[in-house]
Design a binder for these strands. Structure first.
Lengths: 377, 377
DNA sequence: GGTAGAACTGAATCACATC
DNA sequence: GGATGTGATTCAGTTCTAC
């Protein structure tokens, strides 16, 4: 767990065993290019946003950018930052699976550049998320609003990707049964969670709270998924991924951060598998054909079905279709036609009479599922 | 007050008397070019968001969502939208006083394009502000997080501008004596405030709440200042500016919106100078999600919960749901299922063990609130 | 007239498996 | 890969309707 690899140690078409749950030491783009295409489920990135550039950034022609504050150099440094952003996002996109998603966090200094580039490269933004800080740093000069939030962008690799992972039902159930909003509230990373160096100073300037990563990982990955962090830093992504039963890949240049991250991740104990089960809803349930209710003698041909208010009725035929006046077809089709709608969920529309009351046929589907499960096991 | 001017009625080097507190009818860039340079204190802009909606969207009850599909929100490409954005921002910048500031509102569809262009044109971002909606539209299909906020960018014309207006003390005083944060909470514009047409339908698809404009105007202008709105729409900016004793200039193309705005603004009575206190946003109840207890390490996945008499127990999972036998879901849902009730308040039903005794999880919620309330829920 | 419940609404980039 | 059929999905309000 959490070994370190030099890029030179990776073979060209590297095997997962070479990079899974490891930290790749080196430049972010070079490391991403060592990884196979379509190989990670989710990327979390906390890219640098210092527009002073600190010698980190290069123009597209590889010449170094000097940080200057006047107007034209300002523009110049935006261009350099855009080139840097484009390079790592492109490399990251190659590594992402077709149904994978990417998270990027930033502040107003850089998030607009990042967001534009994400759109330009063909990613499809799913949400922008606001991390509201319970305890942000005050604005000392009193010349602006207190900068009390950061912004995350969540995007799928493809605009047409529909099958990305989103644990909607679990999020809703964990949030008093109302759907999770785009504004999240967490404290900043302080206290015992904040890594310190030998002098007791903070080890990393922008260590993210584990709760933030936990929300991200729990919302958009499944247990066993692979999460890549191209700006690994002190390893929050790796620590939370390991605890939550996910695999990670980190990329980091600075040995100090790598050392701290390795030690940190080593100490993590993953949660029990049973505690990692993610709540799923009806969508994940096995399909049941209406005709199975007849097959299983839960419903007999000739039975009359009603909607909740008995405004409509239809009769079950032996072939698993229903008929109502001129309309015949599936429970869904007939329900839609009777109401004049395009669609209708017949399972939650039609009822049958029992003991003078109306029972939903969806109840029979539940019973059928239990029988099918038992037979299948 | 609130007269309408055709662009052809304006002289080349137009005098303030020709355009102050009026609506200029015509294209936004053309109108801006008719105004003298360095002449307005603040610009508020609510440009088209370029939503790029594909098909229809229906609510679960089959009703159709009234989408923003107006012609003015259609652009062929990001490049076309960027060109449009660049043109109006450039024209707006010329009209702005050297110490003036600009506000632009948008969503994730457009705000990254707008923010990048603002930076590219030499504006200097002072804050990004999040408008958190108390009552946003849900995500009906459960495929994303509920899109519950919009973003505003506040920027000065020049990077070196130090003398822009920011009423720090007044904001702080209006906010329980703590400095105003970058996340604001307001309801969307509904009810009596929402302008309707003759048929009772909403007059404008995206009318902004007056409280939002009031916060903006009170924070970044002085009485008597001039506020320009290049996408005037139904005239919220003009109405609030007049009420708060500021001058406005609106630019709008559609006669329907102009007519409604004129009538609306006519009816406004300016407040007495002494009454120009800041309108504060609605304070929400401090709502705590069960998953926050895990986020804040007040409870760990794997913890066993009991009811008061230890008749029932359930286990906490990492996703913030709980599981008991065949039942899994929210603390409320599982409590209800176990007791055979329709509903159950999980907060006052479930306990955790500590020092051999049982403690209500509602106690943990109380502790979590202490950390959260500071941020105003 | 008052109240309870139904109906309606809002800047929305909102399936997916099978044939 | 395209067409087809099944079937999953909503929060905080305000306004309207029935009694």
């Amino acid at each position: 767990m959490s070994a370190v690899r030099l890029l030179s140690q990776l073979s060209q078409a590297s095997q997962p065993s070479e990079w899974l749950d490891t930290i790749l030491k080196g430049d972010c783009v070079a490391a991403l290019e060592k990884l196979p295409a379509n190989s990670v489920d989710v990327i979390f990135a906390d890219p640098p946003y210092n527009l002073q550039l600190a010698g980190d950034l290069h123009r597209p022609d590889q010449s170094k950018v000097d940080a200057v504050d006047d107007h034209w150099d300002q523009f110049d440094s935006f261009a350099a930052y855009d080139a840097f952003t484009r390079a790592w996002l492109l490399a990251a996109r190659r590594v992402l699976k077709p149904n994978g998603t990417i998270w990027v966090i930033g502040s107003y200094h850089n998030i607009f550049r990042v967001g534009s580039m994400i759109q330009d490269l063909g990613f499809w933004i799913l949400n922008d998320i606001v991390w509201r800080k319970t305890n942000p740093m005050p604005n000392f000069r009193g010349r602006r609003f207190q900068n009390a939030h950061e912004t995350l962008i969540w995007a799928s690799r493809e605009s047409k990707a529909k099958a990305y992972t989103f644990n909607y039902e679990a999020l809703k159930a964990s949030n008093d049964d109302v759907q999770m909003r785009s504004d999240w509230l967490f404290p900043i990373c302080t206290g015992g969670e904040r890594l310190k160096d030998d002098q007791g100073n903070k080890l990393h300037p922008t260590q993210k709270p584990e709760a933030l990563l936990a929300r991200i990982i729990m919302s958009s990955t499944k247990p066993g998924d692979v999460i890549l962090d191209p700006f690994f830093g002190s390893g929050t992504t790796g620590a939370v991924a390991k605890r939550l039963g996910r695999h990670f890949v980190g990329i980091e240049r600075e040995q100090t951060y790598i050392d701290a991250a390795v030690e940190r991740i080593e100490a993590i104990r993953p949660l029990e598998r049973a505690d990692l089960t993610v709540l799923t809803g009806k969508r994940a349930e096995a399909r049941v054909a209406f005709v199975s209710l007849l097959d299983m003698n839960l419903l007999a041909p000739g039975t009359v079905l009603y909607d909740a208010k008995k405004r409509y009725k239809a009769k079950v035929r032996a072939d698993g279709t229903i008929v109502s006046g001129d309309f015949a077809g599936s429970i869904h089709r007939v329900g839609a036609l009777l109401q004049g709608f395009d669609t209708c969920n017949g399972w939650t529309f039609w009822h049958y009479e029992r003991n003078g009351g109306l029972n939903l046929i969806d109840e029979l589907r539940r019973i059928a599922r239990l029988g099918i499960e038992r037979a299948g096991a």
